[in-house]
């Protein structure tokens, strides 16, 4: 379980998060949703120690985030920010192999190589593994970064808008794979998603943020209803049902 208590955060004087206290359950696929600028990414980045914590505390299982060495965290928690920076010139296989680095610190074993190869296969990158990162498409690069995060093989997986750059089939494939990791391997996943219907279709737990505060939490059925969503996005939204799960509709 990830325990967030009293988290507030400012960037350049502007309040981004305001006294957030919440629990993200273990063994579930949790989706962070909310309008632009709600603070979803900032919250995820704080949990993944990509931003220094300004106020409040975060516990990941028994570990206090600010007191645990970074490398120990890296074996328990993998985090993938949005890849906006210019690509380094690594082969995809090298990039994914670096996902094992927290475990072997430079001395890769046969097991590390096996996990790397599996992660490449899982994301359909087997044929591209010798290509350079700056020579593949944005979606392929995104999949390579995801494969690296998977290869890290941690209990917790935090992904910031992982569906960016992915086409419909790869996006669906990723969500189903995340759901599978939770179901079969007992992992816990937290994703920031932009399109609410991916949360509706795959998430077990939803945290909705607005203006740096928690607007609603609960199961998809509890959160994804016309009233909550319309207030959340300030837009008239209807919710239908499709294959037993909510389906968010708007024009």
């Amino acid at each position: 379980m990830i325990q967030l208590s009293g988290i507030s955060h400012r960037i350049g004087g502007a309040p981004i998060l305001n006294d957030i206290t919440a629990e993200l359950p273990r063994g579930k696929l949790t989706a962070l949703i909310g309008p632009n600028g709600a603070g979803k990414s900032t919250l995820l980045r704080l949990i993944g120690r990509l931003e220094p914590l300004q106020q409040g505390s975060i516990h990941i299982d028994e570990m206090d985030l600010t007191r645990t060495p970074s490398v120990d965290l890296a074996r328990r928690l993998a985090v993938l920010g949005q890849q906006t920076q210019i690509a380094s010139r690594l082969r995809l296989s090298d990039l994914v192999a670096f996902g094992r680095w927290p475990h072997h610190q430079g001395r890769a074993t046969a097991r590390d190589r096996k996990i790397t190869a599996e992660a490449l296969e899982t994301f359909g990158l087997g044929d591209l593994s010798h290509r350079f990162l700056d020579e593949v498409s944005g979606g392929q690069a995104q999949r390579a970064y995801l494969a690296m995060t998977f290869a890290q093989d941690t209990d917790w997986l935090l992904l910031d808008e992982p569906l960016n750059n992915l086409d419909m089939s790869h996006a669906r494939g990723l969500m189903s794979r995340l759901s599978g990791l939770v179901g079969s391997a007992g992992k816990s996943v937290v994703v920031v998603v932009h399109e609410v219907n991916y949360a509706a279709a795959w998430a077990d737990h939803i945290v909705a943020l607005k203006d740096g505060r928690i607007a609603a939490t609960g199961t998809p059925d509890e959160v994804l209803n016309a009233g909550t969503l319309s207030a959340l996005y300030d837009t008239e939204i209807e919710v239908a049902r499709h294959q037993g799960r909510p389906l968010v509709l708007h024009h």
């Binding site: 490398v71 993938l80 920010g81 680095w101």
Partner: peptide, 20 residues
């Protein structure tokens, strides 16, 4: 060398992999 290569991927990736 490995550490420099990881840093070359950006500070976020490096932090995610537990590199100081």
């Amino acid at each position: 060398a490995d550490r420099f290569a990881i840093l070359g991927l950006g500070e976020e990736v490096a932090t995610g992999l537990g590199l100081g």
